[in-house]
Design a protein around this nucleic acid. Structure first.
Lengths: 143, 143
DNA sequence: GTTTATGCAAATATTTTGCAACGTT
DNA sequence: AACGTTGCAAAATATTTGCATAAAC
C-alpha cells in the first residue's frame, strides 16, 4: 500500500505504525512513539519518528490530536466518514482521553453552509470535564 | 478588578489586554501581542507577554485557541455560558477564523453524562473547511 | 546501482526560568 | 519600604534540517 506511492517499506515505518496500532486508544506523542519503537529497534532516531509521522499524516494513515498540554499526539486514522465523527472526551483530573462517535455535528455543518457558504470538510471536537472516577474523588475531597 | 487578587496593575498588563481587546475577533499569538504592545511601549520583553498571558488565563480573562498551525493564540474571554458556546470556523484556504455561537452541544453533553457519567465542563469545537471566497477560487482553478 | 530513507548533530522555534533592577501599592 | 513585576539572558522543550551513510528496490 505504501509501495504504490513509490515509497519504501522500512522496518522503522512498520514499527511506528505498529506502535500506534497496538496502543489501542492510545494517543501517543512523538517522544512516546520513539520510546516504544526503541525497545525493539534501539538505533532508531527521533528525527525518523518525526519524518515518518509527517509522511503518515500526508497519507492519511494517522491523524493528529491536540490535547493542549503542549504535546501533539497521533492516532491511527479510522479514515473517511468515521474519522469525521470521532471525538474526544478529555478528563481534566486524570488526563485520560476517551474517544466517542457522534454525528450530531452533521446538521450543524449543513446549517453553516446554508447560512454562510462556509463548507466544512473536517472538524475537531474536544469535550473537557471529569470522568466518573475523578468526579467521585472530587466529591470526597470537598465534603 | 485585578487589584482584588492582590495583583498589581501595570502598564504592561493593561497594554496586553488592550491589544487583545482592540483586535476584535483577532486571535493573536504571543509574538503578535508582543509586536503590537512594543509599538506603544518599546521596552516590553517577550517574557512579560508570556507571563501575563498565563496570568490572564488563570483569571479567566482570556482564552487560548489552538488552530493547529503550530501557534497558540489568545482571545478575550467572553466568560461564562457564552464562552462555552463559542466556536471557530477555520478556513483552510486563507486561514481566516470566524467565530460563531451555537448551543447544539448542550444536548450531547447531557447525553454523555447520562450514559458515561462523564461531566463536561468546557469544550472546544473547530470546524475546518473553506470560506465562500476560497470555495470560489478553488472552483475557478479546477475548471 | 540508483534512489530513497536513516541517524546523528546542529539549527529553529517557542516558551519558561533565574535574577538583579524597577514600579506599584 | 515591601513586595510583586519586569527585562534580559540563558535554559528548556519541541520539532526541523543538512549531510554522509545505510537500506530498499
Amino acid at each position: 500500500m505504501l509501495r504504490e506511492k513509490g515509497l519504501k517499506v522500512t522496518k522503522q515505518r512498520l514499527l511506528i505504525l505498529e506502535a500506534l496500532g497496538s496502543c489501542g486508544d492510545g494517543h501517543l506523542t512523538a517522544e512516546e512513539i520513539y520510546e516504544i519503537v526503541k525497545k525493539g529497534y534501539p538505533k532508531i532516531g527521533l528525527a525518523t519518528v518525526y519524518r515518518t509521522i509527517q509522511l503518515l499524516l500526508n497519507l492519511d494513515l494517522i491523524e493528529s490530536v491536540h490535547l493542549e498540554d503542549g504535546y501533539v499526539r497521533y492516532e491511527i486514522g479510522k479514515s473517511g466518514e468515521r474519522s469525521h465523527r470521532h471525538h474526544h472526551l478529555i478528563c481534566l483530573g486524570c488526563k485520560k482521553v476517551i474517544s466517542f462517535q457522534n454525528d450530531l455535528l452533521d446538521d450543524l455543518e449543513s446549517q453553516i453552509y446554508e447560512s454562510t457558504s462556509f463548507q466544512v470538510v473536517n472538524h475537531e471536537v474536544k469535550l473537557y470535564g471529569y470522568c466518573r472516577e475523578c468526579l467521585e474523588n472530587r466529591r470526597k475531597r470537598i465534603t
